[in-house]
Write a protein that binds this DNA or RNA. Structure first.
Length: 555
RNA sequence: UGGGUUAUGGUGUAAAGGUAGCACAACAGAUUUUGAUUCUGUUUGUCUAGGUUCGAAUCCUAGUAACCCAACCA
């Protein structure tokens, strides 16, 4: 074990080196979402990283909302983000907002102006863009670049006072229009937005840009390691430039590769489209890769944390198999979920030699671990079994029910199929069996060995439930990199609703977010749409299924 | 005037000049009152071409490929 712990990711190496060199007494990280959408599984990689690193090295983590763009942000998102982080199992040291620092940031801007390092530009957005050049073409200086410190100072103050309309003026850092890094070509650091901010209301009509808020906020909070994703690499030069010019606490930015996962999309923009255009039913639709969607689907916080641990941290682009996430989920659920019986596609099984007026109470274990206890099951001569567990003409290697064949009814008796009846459409309507009285579960003296065990529910005692089965949202592994609109690759069969599944009555006591294994069918949990007496279950994940694979292979 | 970042099995991720390891996936077998779980085993890899070295995924040289940067978004 200690051998494995020796291999550190590159951030752990940096931190250990910093600590060993005495550069910091302890580390402080931050998780900095913009409150303009819901968190997704990609964010959980960042959350686990930032909080995990701090925990590992005895530091702490701030939650900071990067709320510098009032037109896209909302309190609704702030609350959902906090919920999701707490649900994942993390606690932040301090809850901060970039907007807490608007006054300080404004003063910083004046500092820059006074040093001759910022100027007010009256150019239009188009003019600024055209003078900016391109990656392979140098930029040109703005005609407003050489305004005096006094004029800039006055103009910037006037911007703050609301003397100008949106877009009329901006404040720019005066760096180098020839810089190969586009971000160093006099980046805009303040723009005018007469908009209502979810926290500061109408106090401000100028708002700092990301680059003039993020690093400064890190610095103000004394963040030691500011960890972000790869696309911010070019920002690091600017990040450091501001810290140096402002002479403030030197936080350092480090970048890692964001999470991509097969059969889903991870950009907020795309997820927003799925929600707004009705391809899913909201941000917490169980098919969404959002934390709230995964949570509603039945994912456990531990499984997500474990997943984030296993995928590792590095600096190369990656596309993680969805199957790894599902593996982590099953690993957790296998140990914790109670086993119950539910029949999703019911067909009637009649036991001809079991008295019609008799009901028997059987005992079934709740799980592989004895500590999970047991419960009572009602047994009678009329049962529901899964339609797919009967084959009129059995395939090879089939060891479920078929004419003349025997199977064990889980926790009950062995039955032999004597015949069946069909309805007018040719579908099986009833399966006739006899049971072996000496084969009762736990006290079997029949000596009969059967290969198959199937689940069942007593028809006379069954309750009903709606069951929702979810499949992957997209038909292709990487919809975002596919040609054309990613929405063309949506899996139209990602949701299957079973209006009336037959469930054992103990499931009527299910609590929200309580997870079950429906034996042989998968893991399920109660959905928030449930009403008293009218439960709704979501399939969290299927069980691994060697039989279906076998069938596919022989076809 | 372009700059930056990254390349290890199907997918991730280790190996800091010295046995290419681990996990997922796949495949095979054993156990099983869940065709689940568990257990055992197998297959598959250092971007290319040169070079240095007793020895290279690692160092050097030259290529190649992928990704990021031209919002008054973050």
């Amino acid at each position: 074990m200690s051998e494995e712990e020796k291999s550190l990711n590159f951030l752990e190496e940096i931190i250990e080196a910093d600590l060993a060199a005495g550069r910091y007494k302890s580390i402080l990280t931050r998780f900095p979402p913009e409150p303009n959408g819901y968190l997704h599984i990609g964010h959980s990689k960042s959350i686990c990283l930032n909080f995990g690193l701090a925990a590992k090295y005895g530091g702490s983590t701030n939650l900071r909302f990067d709320d510098t763009n009032p037109v896209t942000e909302d309190t609704e998102y702030v609350e959902s983000i906090k919920d999701d982080i707490r649900w994942l199992g993390f606690s932040w040291a301090e809850e901060k907002y970039a907007s807490d620092y608007f006054e300080t940031l404004y003063q910083y801007a004046h500092t820059l102006i006074n040093k001759g390092l910022a100027y007010v530009d009256d150019s239009s957005a188009e003019e600024i863009a055209s003078l900016k050049g391109s990656p392979s073409e140098a930029g040109k200086n703005s005609p407003f670049r050489n305004r005096s410190v006094e004029e800039n100072s006055q103009l910037f103050s006037a911007m703050k006072e609301g003397k100008y309309k949106d877009g009329e003026k901006v404040l720019r850092a005066k760096i180098d229009m020839l810089a190969p890094n586009m971000l160093m070509r006099d980046p805009i650091i303040y723009r005018i937005k007469h908009a209502h901010h979810h926290r500061t209301g109408n106090d401000w009509c100028i708002y700092p840009m990301y680059d003039f808020a993020h690093g400064q906020s890190d610095s103000i909070e004394n963040i030691t390691h500011s960890i972000c994703t790869l696309e911010f690499i070019p920002h690091r030069e600017l990040y450091n430039w501001f810290i140096e010019q402002l002479n403030i606490f030197p936080s350092h930015q480090y970048e890692f590769a964001r999470l991509n996962m097969t059969y889903t999309v991870m950009s907020k923009r795309k997820l927003l489209q799925l929600v707004n255009e009705g391809h899913v039913n909201g941000w917490d639709d169980p098919r969404m890769p959002t934390i709230s969607g995964l949570r509603r689907k039945g994912y456990t916080p531990a499984s997500i944390r474990n997943f984030c641990e296993r995928i590792g941290i590095a600096r190369r682009e990656n596309l993680i198999d969805l199957s790894l996430l599902e593996f982590c989920l099953r690993e957790d659920l296998n140990e914790t979920a109670f086993r119950v019986m539910a029949v999703l596609d019911p067909v009637k099984l009649i036991i001809s030699n079991y008295p019609d007026d008799q009901t028997e109470t059987l005992i079934s274990e709740n799980g592989p671990d004895e500590k999970m206890g047991s419960r009572n099951l009602q047994f009678s001569n009329e049962l529901w079994i899964e339609r797919e567990d009967f084959m009129e003409e059995p395939a090879k290697k089939w060891f479920r029910l078929a004419p003349g064949a025997m199977v064990r009814l889980k926790s009950a008796y062995i039955v032999r199929c004597d015949g069946f009846t069909k309805d007018d459409s040719g579908a099986i309507s009833e399966i006739n069996c006899t049971y072996i009285p000496e084969s009762r579960s736990g006290q079997d003296t029949s000596g009969i060995q059967v290969k198959g065990t199937i689940h069942w529910v007593s028809a006379k005692h069954a309750a009903k439930a709606e069951v929702r089965l979810y499949d992957r949202l997209f038909r292709v592994e990487d919809p975002a990199s596919e040609e054309g609109d990613f929405k063309a690759y949506i899996n139209s069969d990602s949701l299957q609703i079973i209006p009336e599944a037959m469930i054992e009555t103990s499931l009527l006591d299910a609590k929200p977010e309580q997870r079950f294994q429906f034996i042989r069918k998968g893991y399920f949990c109660l959905d928030k749409d449930s009403q008293p007496g009218k439960p709704v279950f979501n399939r969290t994940v299927t069980l691994k299924d060697a039989w279906t694979k076998e069938v596919k292979k022989s076809n």
